[in-house]
């Protein structure tokens, strides 16, 4: 009986671990930005904003995409590759829809004269939501790569690690969005 081996076997796959630490790092960046927001919101010349309705649609879209992503992981593990590809593609499209809706939300705000000039919550919103959208786009690129591998790859994929790593990230950007939304509703409004 080699106790050490048992111990080692229970360890998380290094690539998943890498993803968790990267998530910690991304959280710190958004923590920095939202802290700056809190500091500024207590000062003079602060203009709060109402979130336009586009952001509610995008919230629904990203929540659904998390479900489809999870189903894709399950399909992969059950080796239902056709379903896996479909769900992956669907998640990818939902990611793009989310980013597009965010863009419409920005346009809506901009048309209300909430621009970069002048102080207030607006300028933070563009940067924080914009950075979040960039992170979603990063996830979309990752899904695209996996989609191409699933379609055109010459070797059969058996390891579930890449798809699990992608799903961890995808759920993370989803949860991050929910946090940002609640944050802006409570403190930005």
């Amino acid at each position: 009986m080699d106790i050490v081996s048992t111990h080692q076997k229970q360890k998380m796959h290094p690539h998943k671990f890498v993803m968790w630490i990267a998530i910690g790092s991304i959280i710190m960046m958004f923590a920095g930005l939202t802290s700056a927001f809190i500091v500024k919101s207590n000062q003079t010349n602060w203009n709060p904003i109402d979130l336009p309705h586009e952001f509610w649609f995008s919230t629904a879209v990203i929540l659904i995409s998390s479900v489809t992503m999870q189903l894709a992981v399950r399909a992969f593990k059950q080796r239902a590759m056709t379903t896996y590809r479909r769900l992956l593609a669907f998640t990818l499209v939902l990611g793009l829809v989310f980013v597009t809706l965010q863009w419409f939300g920005f346009q809506n705000l901009w048309s209300q004269q909430i621009t970069f000039s002048g102080g207030g919550a607006g300028q933070f919103l563009y940067i924080i939501f914009g950075l979040h959208a960039l992170h979603v786009l990063g996830g979309v690129v990752a899904l695209l790569v996996m989609f191409c591998k699933a379609f055109f790859g010459k070797t059969k994929l058996y390891s579930a690690v890449p798809v699990e790593v992608a799903s961890i990230y995808w759920h993370f950007v989803d949860i991050l969005w929910i946090y940002l939304l609640i944050f802006f509703l409570i403190i930005g409004g």
Partner: peptide, 16 residues
Amino acid sequence: VLSFPVLLSGVLLLFF
């Protein structure tokens, strides 16, 4: 890993 991202957010705002 925990502190550099905060500088990134700081200089990003400076860039804007």
